[in-house]
Design a protein around this nucleic acid. Structure first.
Lengths: 173, 173
DNA sequence: CCTCCTGAGTTGCGTTTTTCTACTCAGCCA
DNA sequence: TGGCTGAGTAGAAAAACGCAACTCAGGAGG
């Protein structure tokens, strides 16, 4: 049975990531922030989210280090706060793009995707405006690794489940 | 001048994708399914999820086309059902890997990530076992597009917000 | 035949989250 | 002084969650 060691699925970065951004609205707030929304009222208007929920979510995201609260003051107006993404928050862009691609592929509007992500890079006198996609690449340089040809291996922080639960074993702790 | 047109954030594939897999547990169920869990009891034991929730989630995922219910029968046991991912479900692998990488980067166990995803491909007599990462690539062939150098453009199914409800917007800027 | 056992759910019920609506609060402006 | 606006807070209703107990179908054992 020892050969059956399985990585503990609870001690997993996916689970931890979802505990931070897996709540309703969280990823949508990050998406709008990536698109330039910074102020409470703007986020609320764009998403149609209730004020108290937005308030709670923003606090959670700030506490988690995904966003940061920065003071600002419009001329002739009082001092207020707005919210901006941290590096950690901007790094969610790839996750959001993966979700976008998946949604485009399976759930898009009949007319096609509503958003297309494009590359913006200088190329001599023109700029590259080609479509950007999320792909898998291995560090040996293999690009376009098909998702079927990857597998999970234990990392340095792995914990294992001793008693391998036969299908049918009810959880016991 | 309509230069201020903004893509309607509600008509977005991210929002639609989250309406399918954004509920609590959904992505974790998909993750376990990708790792080989197929049976109700096994999913329940691995995740520690309550039976009624797992039941509800599986129904939702099946209805959405992410998973499929297939009959099976162990020798000397009665006929039962198990759950397997559809193509649509397996395509969530990239999303999950993006989430995993993000979690590894910012929320990992102090000892390091618990899971490392590796390439499994034949390479002459050996196999490639290098680490796999999620990267952005544009269709002009630029690989390693930094997340900062992408931008959103309207696609064929885009809808726009006419009266921009931006709180700070006065007359046309 | 009758009873026990097991995996796969379903049902009931109390707790937690989410949502909606209305209200407050701080400062600018008139 | 009182109105206006962006940024929240408060409270009640609705939905989702989680536990435990229960049902259900069939095989095994007697």
């Amino acid at each position: 049975m020892e050969s059956e060691r399985r990585i503990d699925p609870v001690n997993c970065s996916v689970a931890r990531a979802l505990s931070v951004v897996g709540e309703r609205w969280s990823l949508l707030i990050v998406r709008e922030a990536l698109d330039g929304a910074r102020r409470f009222g703007e986020l609320r208007a764009r998403l149609g989210i209730a004020g108290n929920l937005l308030s709670t979510r923003l606090s959670t995201l700030v506490a988690a280090g995904v966003m940061r609260r920065v003071p600002y003051q419009d001329p002739g107006d009082r001092h207020r706060y707005e919210y901006e993404l941290t590096e950690q928050g901007m790094d969610l862009r790839i996750t959001l793009m993966a979700l976008l691609e998946w949604g485009d592929k399976y759930l898009a509007d009949p007319q096609g995707p509503s958003v297309v992500v494009r590359h913006r890079a200088a190329e001599g006198d023109a700029t590259c405006e080609e479509r950007v996609r999320v792909v898998l690449e291995c560090s040996a340089g293999h690009t376009h690794v098909p998702p079927q040809s990857v597998h999970r291996t234990p990392g340095p922080g792995a914990r294992f489940l001793e008693a391998s639960p036969r299908p049918g074993d009810t959880a016991q702790a």
